[in-house]
Write a protein that binds this DNA or RNA. Structure first.
Length: 300
DNA sequence: TACACGTGGAT
DNA sequence: TATCCAAGTGT
């Protein structure tokens, strides 16, 4: 929703001070925030963090950056190795796209992750959020970073709604730009600070307002925590879906060293029509390679 | 603009 | 147990 009015300069300054100060005292020591983390490391972390919690990303991130410390190292591998190494992080197309990114970075950018927002945005799997995050966190560029955490914090603190709109809106972008500090490095720190606040205090289901640095500024708190109004957020069914079937089938491929016979995949999922449909879609997506006879493997 | 796309922990 | 949701992107 559009805020009634944009915050004043004094409001903005107070928000900056409260949030940046809190971050200085409460930031988690995450490996991709260390000074020795390269832009490539930041990129790997951002791909893994798309819809996946930090605690599950941590061990996979460490394994990836150790095995493939530069884009060229991953680009030299078959895509199937990236898919296998993705393990059970979920959404394995991210692994495929990150591998495509590595090859594009080698071919088009001399092996270095680009700094420019538009060049980043042109890479596969890099959208509005991820391009801004890499430019800001890896290179200190000044871009509004609007992930689900930032959107929720701004929705509550400024707009007064428990939840942001279902999809990112123009007013949200205007507000985020209004709040972005003028100095590029400070803007980047502000963005990661608001994200951290959304993750550690202003969480979706259990906000810890008593320990929130914005508690004296927060519009949602000031108005008595009005419940979310608007359409209920659609639950995502999973059991019995094509997604579950795809995950099961890919898991068999991932856990096998070589090719897998059709008979083995048949044992992994009973519903014949659904299994065939899922397999076709995995092949169409490039996540699975059909062999000439009867068999499948991770793509080379 | 909705919907598809994995997985597992929390409530 | 069922539902929610976690640093989104592509179509």
């Amino acid at each position: 929703m559009e805020p009634p009015t944009l915050p004043t300069d004094a409001d903005v300054a107070a928000l900056h001070a409260a949030c940046l100060d809190w971050y200085g005292q409460n930031a988690r020591d995450l490996p991709w925030r260390r000074t020795y983390a390269t832009p490539w490391h930041v990129m790997v972390s951002e791909f893994m963090l798309q819809q996946t919690p930090v605690v599950r990303v941590l061990p996979m991130y460490e394994a990836w950056v150790e095995r493939w410390p530069r884009p060229a190292d991953l680009a030299a591998e078959p895509v199937g190795e990236a898919i296998r190494a993705w393990g059970r992080l979920g959404y394995p197309r991210r692994a495929m796209r990150l591998h495509e990114c590595a090859r594009a970075i080698v071919e088009r950018h001399g092996g270095e992750v680009p700094e420019d927002r538009d060049q980043l945005r042109a890479l596969p799997g890099v959208g509005e959020y991820t391009s801004a995050a890499i430019a800001a966190f890896a290179y200190g560029r000044r871009h509004a970073v609007l992930d689900t955490n930032v959107r929720r914090v701004l929705s509550r603190a400024i707009t007064g709604n428990e939840h942001p709109p279902r999809t990112l809106t123009r007013p949200e972008r205007v507000l985020a730009e209004r709040l972005l500090p003028a100095s590029p490095p400070v803007a980047a720190r502000w963005s990661v600070a608001v994200m951290e606040l959304g993750a550690l205090r202003c969480s979706a289901t259990a906000p810890d307002c008593d320990r929130c640095p914005l508690r004296t500024h927060c519009a949602w708190r000031r108005t008595g925590y009005p419940a979310h109004d608007g359409p209920p957020r659609r639950a995502q069914a999973y059991a019995g879906t094509d997604r579950q079937c795809r995950g099961r089938l890919l898991g068999v491929l991932r856990d096998s060293d070589g090719p897998v016979a059709g008979s083995e995949l048949r044992r992994a999922w009973d519903d014949h029509a659904q299994r065939e449909r899922a397999l076709d879609s995995l092949v169409a997506d490039g996540l699975v390679e059909p062999l000439d006879g009867d068999g499948f493997r991770l793509p080379r």
